[in-house]
Design a binder for these strands. Structure first.
Length: 298
DNA sequence: AGCGTCACCCGGACGC
DNA sequence: TGCGTCCGGGTGACGC
């Protein structure tokens, strides 16, 4: 029934010698880039101010809350008022309630003009009053959509926003020292800090010159400040490049050309020339420079 | 309670 | 051609 008119992706999977035979999820910079594009409009008009006529749901398990039937009924005739981001969630404030979308591994959201050919992985389509369509495509089907009166049911569990002014080195210090966890999985824990995934965690630790296996309570204040700065540097660099485009969907960002460690195993460290290593930490591929991020002292 | 580990969801790409 | 394996984020089960 659906015709695949999606052109094959350019070969962007072997940029650094390491083969990217898998997708990975959009993180804070990618989600922020999508939010900004929808908010401002690009080739299409801004999403705020648009009203939803109806919705098509091709993969009902995407709808996390409420039930699919209730979702379908409640989303009708809703007006988009704001598009924001919290952690890796897109937050759509409506005239009644809030819709949250988590893209997980392979999700993407685009606002397209009328009669745009269907994409192979379009799963949920919001038909708007002016006949533009907001399309949620998701090859891996791991994405989640919520429609809530109180978005804090979901967003309330999230840790601080790393780019907020309220996120200071001291806040980070108190959170790190309260725990006794390995840094890499702790930074990816969305209740500890919101928005970091595998790529930006590895990049942040490299900027901070910290080994991914360090214990959270072993850091001194200088190291904590370096980590705070590293997190912000990695995210800011990603944002400046409109995120990375090594997913199933090309988003226009080009940060993948600027990774310091992610996907660069076997290649020389840009600071010292040492071969970048790849290890598994908490079931996740983890890239680091054994010289620059050397001391593990657990 | 806190922490680590593992299976699961899913499907494209790869090795054999 | 086809099967098994791998990968990823988040969740939930389980064990220490």
């Amino acid at each position: 029934m659906l015709v695949d008119l999606t052109p094959p992706l350019p070969s962007i999977y072997s940029l650094h010698g390491e083969l990217y035979n898998h997708p990975h999820m959009p993180e804070l910079p990618e989600v922020e880039t999508i939010a900004q594009t929808l908010r401002r409009g690009n080739d299409s008009p801004p999403l705020p101010g648009q009203r939803i006529k109806r919705v098509t749901i091709r993969w009902p398990r995407h709808i996390a809350m409420p039930s699919v039937t209730t979702f379908r009924r409640r989303i009708r005739d809703r007006l988009f008022s704001e598009v924001n981001r919290r952690g890796k969630y897109l937050v759509f404030a409506l005239d009644r309630g809030t819709m949250l979308i988590h893209l997980r591994m392979s999700g993407d959201l685009v606002l397209v003009p009328p009669d745009t050919p269907a994409g192979r992985y379009d799963r949920t389509v919001f038909y708007l009053e002016d006949d533009h369509e907001l399309r949620f495509s998701d090859a891996r089907k791991f994405g989640k959509i919520f429609l809530l009166d109180d978005p804090d049911i979901v967003l309330g569990k999230l840790g601080p926003e790393p780019l907020d002014a309220s996120f200071t080195p001291l806040i980070l210090a108190s959170r790190l020292l309260k725990r006794r966890r390995i840094l890499k999985p702790l930074l990816m824990d969305q209740t500890f800090i919101a928005g970091l995934g595998n790529i930006y965690t590895d990049e942040a630790l490299y900027h901070a010159r910290l080994h991914p296996l360090r214990r959270s309570d072993s850091l001194d204040m200088n190291e904590i400040t370096a980590l705070w700065q590293g997190i912000r540097d990695a995210l800011t660099l990603g944002l400046r490049h409109s995120g990375a485009s090594i997913d199933w969907v090309y988003r226009g960002g080009d940060f993948q050309h600027h990774f310091r460690v992610y996907g660069r195993s076997g290649e020389p460290c840009l600071k010292c020339g040492t071969s970048i290593e790849r290890i598994i930490v908490g079931q996740r591929g983890t890239h680091f420079c054994p010289t620059c991020q050397g001391e593990v002292n657990v």
